[in-house]
Structure formats: structure tokens, C-alpha cells
Amino acid sequence: MEASPDRDLILRARRGEAEAFGELVRAHQAGVFNVCYRMMGERREAEDMAQEAFIRAYQRIGTFDAERPFGPWMRRVAANVCLNHLAAHKPEAAELDEERDADSAPLPESGREAREEAEQVRAALKGLPSHYRAVVELRHYQEMSYEEIAAELKIPLSDVKSHLFRARKILAETLSHEPSH
């Protein structure tokens, strides 16, 4: 069996080498940031949450099996950190919507339509209740099964399904109402 490429770094980080963990951060930060961006809907907050997620992961790295791939675990931790944060700090959604934000980095003209579509999807995601958003994140972006999601979020399987299906219904309605072109 092929050893996880991050194995050595994980073992060193477990011995308290923060620098080794820094390597892991560099390797996985983009993916983790994207999880956080989908959950938080705002770049600055997503960066903060990504950082927080890595710190939480470091604190629990002793319980992580170094033979398993680090990335998927890390992204789950990130989704959880975001969800907990969102649950603890109830929405101020309305104001933040305005500043959704500087990802209007200049794109080639051909990319504009795609960017608008992406913006609509992000806005629709952000409109979901945070626990729905977490289930969508874990199912659609982290490709976890219903059962894995239930275990990860510590909620009943029936809740996973109902949250996921309702979330999709809301997304379908939101996206079909947006003038997409």
C-alpha cells in the first residue's frame, strides 16, 4: 500500500515540530480555504476560519492516523470549524451580502459569465441555513456518504437526508429565480 505523502510531516508535527505542520498547511491550505469560503461566503472570514481549522487540527493531530490521507480529514475539520463558528455567531448575513467581495479580480471577458454564475451559486449557498450548508458541503464537495456525514456532524441519518434534500430544493428555487444570463 502506498504511504500517504504527508505521513512524515504528520509524524514530525505530532512530535511538536510546528514547522513540519507548516509544510502541511502550505500543501493543503488552498483546499481548506475553499471549504471555508463556501461555508462562510466571505474571503477574510474564510481565511480566518482556515487558519483556525489548521490550529484545531494541530491540537488533535495526536488522534489522527498518519496512514490516512490528511487532506480529506483536514477539510472535514474545516467544515466543522466553520459550522461551529456559524452556529455560535448567528447571522449578520444581510450586511455582509453587500461586500461579497473582492473576487472580482479582473477576469478575461469570456470568464465573466462563468463568474456571474459562480457568484449566484455562492450567494445561494450563503442563503442556506448553516447546518444545511454544512451538509451540502460534505456531500457535494467532500463526497461523503449520508452515513459519514451523520457520523461527522453527530446528527441522525434522517436529519442528514432531510437537510440535504431541503437544501437542494431551496438551491433549485433560488438558482432558477436568478436571471442566469
Binding site: 505542520f21 507548516g22 509544510e23 498547511v25 502550505r26 491550505q29 488552498a30 483546499g31 480555504f33 475553499n34 469560503y37 463556501r38 474571503r43 481565511e47 482556515a50 487558519q51 489548521f54 490550529i55 494541530y58 473576487d103 462563468a114 454564475e117 459562480a118 451559486v121 455562492r122 451540502v136 457535494h140 464537495y141 438551491l171
Partner: peptide, 17 residues
Amino acid sequence: LSALPELELARDLSADV
């Protein structure tokens, strides 16, 4: 959902972590 593009991270988080 699956067409949503991944965004680039604007800064390296590792030093802060």
C-alpha cells in the same frame, strides 16, 4: 454546485499558523 470554481488563496496562511 460542481461547476463552482475553486478560488485562489490570496496569502500564505502557514506562517501565521
